[in-house]
Design a protein around this nucleic acid. Structure first.
Length: 794
RNA sequence: GAACCCGUAGUCUAAUGGUAGAACACCUCGUUUACACCGAGGAUACCCAAGUUCGAUUCUUGGCGGGUUCACCA
């Protein structure tokens, strides 16, 4: 039963998690308490297997602040959710279950997804998050697919529709032919691919005209040819008809400034749609739309004999045929970046289809202004947001053509296509299962309706987490206090500023005309040991589960505190060792303190010995500094100051100074040391508590609990300090003199406790006035004489 | 092409308009009734250039190098 003298982190951490849970230490107080609220809007991790190192990194950094705020006396609202709808979840279920959504009914597939989420994915995520020591109120849990989220998300859709902020239209949109759905601008990734730049001969008035393209398979979708209006070479061609090779139809030659005379032959073909520019041209010049590529990535009948071929296949075949017909004059190997879908690496296409959009291009300036009203930590992350908003080219396409997710609460009139929104009281609805709220179309009277089969993109819902969290608290006394207020803060990684933060600001502004939060805390990324993004393909991934098992959650959290907020960091493995060393030292120092407190009744000494008083002063200064940095979410610096103070000032100096008095002293001088040892240790533990909550809790439970009222160190109050509390010069001078003596002993190669006769200059003797006995004790000086500095054997 | 971040010992980092502080690694010594997962000490560092300044690692500008994001990608 008796454990070895050391601290068994695994046993202790699991026991402490249980304790926190049993005593509901992190419960948000939803009564009508007057305690000031500090609220977090926490990123619901995408359920994609298990909690990964990136989650742990960000969650830990948020938890440092959550715990600090709680000890500061705030009523901390710290919910936890999981993001488990839409494409990511669909892909995970397909992979894990070995099934394909398209091979079964939608109903069946959804059933399988919901079951897996509820029984496997979410419980696993919760277990992992708890194991890290995250101080969330687990009763404030939401899933972005649960009924509440579905209701809120659908209501949001209906409200924005009524506000004229949403429209449904047929328009070219970013499309993944693999996933067969529209995707958003943010879901794109660049990939460098090899391809050929082909010089193709077009015929115009029996003349040959060379046009270069990387996408000859789009020839059937060619709608016109552009030359630059200032390009004298082609002036004569403008307005004429040109024949598209192989397909032999005619298109006009037009001019546009965007045609670059320097590129290729200076002549460009416009196809609907090869890229962004094609789309702009189509709009500006009111060109016809030709669809050569179908949603499944195969050529349409517009492509004639190439119909049914996949894009790449068709490209190859067309190039072959051009060669045969002597219409290909040159082929150049090039590498270029193409936009691919981040989830499947498929090059995206622009496909013309009917989609729902949230209109926001008209409020770009406001969005920038609103973003600037938020306090960003670190501040420079704001510019990523601004930069993103400035670059927006599309309204927000929110519809996705996949079976799993939150359905649009809408039906369409079979006759006139009028959108029939669900009744709010019926939400959440599934139009594919439920009936519309009206029996006939209010516009044309038709009695038949077609349900929307698309679902809403997952960010449409996760951008509503502030509303979802508040909804959980509906009906409690605290609700009125939070319902019309922004959250105090949201924390998330810098990679989702443009998804989650941006979309959340959009929604909050459009719905509530206020920002969703006052502040944003943006965490960086934890990279592999090689400094590269962790990826299965690189084999540089590390799992938090494994790390916690081998080193403990405290050690991992300690590691996470090594990076400043917002900074990316290569996994600093050495920090785990450093963290464990700290934990061991805390344990041993506490053991020492309480070993020597057995005859101490907890009372204050009549009078503090001078060095004890000075040390407390010194500590108060450290508390102020640490608090200063925590207040600014600068937990890494707070940790560093605490650590330095603990190792250098407390363990190496103060403990050594009072040791002899503790061992051999009696009466007030001993009680003074005992009092200060206990108080300062407690203070130091509190300063560490947000970073390493387990070891500090274990020490609290073992030694402090019986004389303190609180159930956990994490709900004790943060140590007090006076503003502008100075360092103790007396303590500093005392220690610097001590260092001189130690140095001399080291130079003389004698042990630290060998007795000496010490000669000190008069000003040095003056500086230790009132602390002379302690100085003699810590240096093992039998006597102190006045003169030039000298250390002699006794 | 644009925005932003970053260049400090062998490594990873901190602070700072005036002596640059830790940790790991390295060297020397000591083994003391909390701790050998120890203690005391030592050596080693501000990317380059110009400017502001009495003084710049710090502020400004330019360059070089690394990174992230956005854009372009006929």
């Amino acid at each position: 039963m008796v454990k070895s003298k050391g601290y068994d982190f695994e046993e202790a951490e699991l026991r402490i998690i249980q304790l926190w849970q049993d005593k509901k230490i992190f419960k948000f107080d939803s009564s009508d308490t007057t305690k000031e609220i500090f609220s977090f809007d926490t990123p619901p991790p995408t359920v994609s297997g298990v909690l990964h190192m990136g989650h742990a990194f960000g969650d830990a950094q948020q938890d440092f602040i959550a715990r600090y705020k709680r000890m500061q006396g705030f009523n901390v609202l710290n919910p936890f959710g999981t993001d488990d709808n839409g494409l990511p979840t669909l892909k995970l279920v397909e992979k894990e279950k070995g099934i394909k959504a398209k091979n079964m009914t939608r109903k069946k597939f959804i059933e399988i997804c919901l079951k897996a989420i509820k029984e496997e994915y979410v419980p696993q995520f919760l277990t992992d998050a708890k194991r890290l020591g995250t101080s969330s109120d687990w009763d404030l849990f939401y899933s972005t697919i649960d009924a509440r989220s579905r209701r809120i998300s659908q209501k949001s859709f209906i409200d924005l529709y009524k506000a004229g902020r949403e429209y449904r239209t047929k328009a070219p949109s970013l499309w993944c032919t693999e996933c067969q759905t529209t995707i958003a601008q943010v879901e794109l990734e660049d990939e460098t691919k090899k391809t050929t730049f082909n010089d193709i001969t077009f015929k115009i008035d029996d003349q040959d005209l060379t046009i270069s393209t990387t996408r000859p398979e789009l020839l059937p979708a060619c709608v016109c040819i552009f030359v630059n209006p200032n390009d004298s070479r082609y002036k004569g061609l403008v307005g004429k008809q040109i024949t598209v090779p192989l397909f032999n139809f005619q298109v006009p030659v037009l001019t546009d400034e965007k045609a670059d005379p320097e590129k290729g032959s200076g002549v460009v073909m416009c196809c609907t749609f090869g890229d962004q520019t094609d789309m702009e041209w189509q709009k500006e010049h009111k060109l016809e739309i030709k669809e050569a590529i179908a949603p499944d990535g195969k050529m349409t009948k517009l492509a004639g004999k190439y119909e049914g071929m996949k894009i790449v296949e068709a490209r190859k075949q067309i190039i072959e045929d051009l060669k045969k017909a002597n219409l290909l004059t040159k082929q150049e190997e090039i590498t270029h970046d193409v936009n691919v879908h981040e989830r499947c690496q498929t090059p995206i296409e622009f496909i013309n289809s009917t989609q729902w959009f949230v209109k926001y291009l008209d409020i770009k300036d406001d969005l920038i202004k609103w973003g600037e009203e938020i306090k960003w930590h670190p501040n420079h992350m704001k510019y990523r947001y601004i930069n993103w908003v400035k670059g927006l080219k599309w309204d927000w396409c929110i519809s996705r053509q996949i079976p799993f997710g939150i359905p649009f609460p809408v039906w369409y009139c079979k006759e006139c296509d009028e959108s029939i929104m669900a009744d709010e009281k019926d939400l959440p609805v599934d139009p594919m299962e439920d009936s519309p709220p009206v029996s006939k179309c209010p516009k044309c009277g038709c009695k038949e309706f077609i349900p929307e089969t698309d679902i809403m993109n997952t960010w449409t819902t996760s951008s509503l987490t502030p509303d979802i969290t508040k909804d959980i608290l509906k009906g409690t006394p605290v609700y009125d206090k939070i319902k019309d207020k922004p959250f105090s803060i949201r924390r998330n990684g810098h990679d989702i500023i443009t998804f989650w933060d941006f979309n959340s600001i959009v929604k909050s502004r459009l719905h509530h005309n206020r920002n969703p939060w006052d502040e944003l805390m943006i965490n960086g990324w934890i990279l592999g040991k090689d400094g590269k993004k962790m990826a299965k393909s690189r084999g540089n991934g590390l799992s938090p589960q494994e790390t916690i098992k081998n080193h403990g959650a405290d050690a991992l959290r300690y590691l996470c505190a090594a990076a400043k907020l917002g900074d990316d960091i290569a996994f600093p493995e050495a920090e785990l060792v450093k963290g464990k060393k700290l934990i061991t030292k805390l344990w041993n120092a506490s053991k020492f303190v309480f070993m020597n407190l057995e005859d101490y009744d907890g009372g204050k000494p009549k009078k503090l010995e001078k060095i004890d008083e000075e040390f407390l002063k010194h500590l108060e200064n450290a508390v102020e500094l640490v608090s200063y940095h925590f207040e600014r979410y600068n937990y890494s610096h707070a940790k560093e100051i605490t650590e330095r103070f603990f190792f250098k000032e407390f363990a190496d100096n103060y403990i050594e100074i009072v040791k002899k008095r503790i061992y051999n002293g009696a009466g007030n001088e001993k009680i003074s040391a005992q009092y200060v040892l206990r108080e300062s240790l407690f203070t130091i533990l509190k300063l560490f508590a947000p970073i390493t909550p387990f070891i500090t809790e274990e020490i609290y439970q073992t030694y402090f609990k019986k004389s303190e009222k609180k159930e956990s160190i994490h709900i004790t109050s943060w140590p007090e300090y006076k503003e502008g509390s100075p360092k103790s010069q007396a303590f500093i001078e005392f220690c610097s003199l001590l260092t001189n003596v130690r140095q001399e002993k080291t130079n003389k190669q004698i042990s630290m406790n060998s007795e000496i006769i010490l000669t000190l200059p008069s000003e040095a003797i003056k500086s230790i006035e009132g602390m002379k006995e302690d100085f003699k004790a810590v240096t093992a000086a039998k006597e102190i004489k006045e003169g030039n500095f000298k250390v002699e054997f006794a």
